[in-house]
Amino acid sequence: MKLIIEILRQKDRTSEPYRQTIAYEALPDDTVATLLNKLNAEPALTDTVGAPVGTIHWQCSCLQKKCGACAMRINGTPRLACDTKLGEFIKGRLCLEPLRKFPTVRDLIVDRSVMMDNLRAIGNWLEQPAVQTEKAAQLCYDASRCLQCGCCLEVCPNFTADGSFYGAAAFVPASKVLSQLKKENRQNLPQNYRKNIYSGCGKSLSCQDICPAGIDVEQKLVNSNAVAVWKRFFKASQ
């Protein structure tokens, strides 16, 4: 299939972004990730006006929606490149842009370090051995699946990279740790949760359906609020 691909490119952090359009014979069963690898392996690829394309910079790792590396805006929606088949774009154009909420490093690569910083800032860890309960096991499993891809932050009306509201990418992992705390443990996480998550979240749940890992984000929010705000800790079963 003939595919028209538009890519928002940028040479480095400080240079101006520009758009480049490429016409390419693509396979409908290939993913956007495979397409990018193929474009990069072309020896002398040129765009629709004959200008050289060169290496298109992007990130990937697992190629099977398990690592979150390849998140980008695909036709305006934040998605995983390795989980998006080209067949979807048969009749239209494919537009690839970097996530907008984070500083662009080059082309489709953004700097998501702030997500790591935020989890550190709220103190997302256990100070005591985990209290594991049957009731919370499914929640812990689901929350532990967070890819730290940033798609939820991209659509969140309240998140900015330099703001004090940390969004679903923080409360999903936090919900696991919160569910494993004992009431008497002294940890900063509940307090920070109230400050950096609870008080800033509009609960619009734009983040709910976008999660490429299919995590039930709303449930994590409800559970975290129960512990951090309403002090309803999970109790060990034995």
Binding site: L119, N124, Y141, S144, R145, V177
Partner: peptide, 21 residues
């Protein structure tokens, strides 16, 4: 389940984070 590596990693990342802080 069939996600053992991810589960180990999430917990270990959290634990190492404590020492990053």
């Amino acid at each position: 389940k069939s996600s053992t590596g991810k589960m180990l990693m999430t917990s270990l990342i959290d634990e190492v984070r404590k020492y990053e802080a």
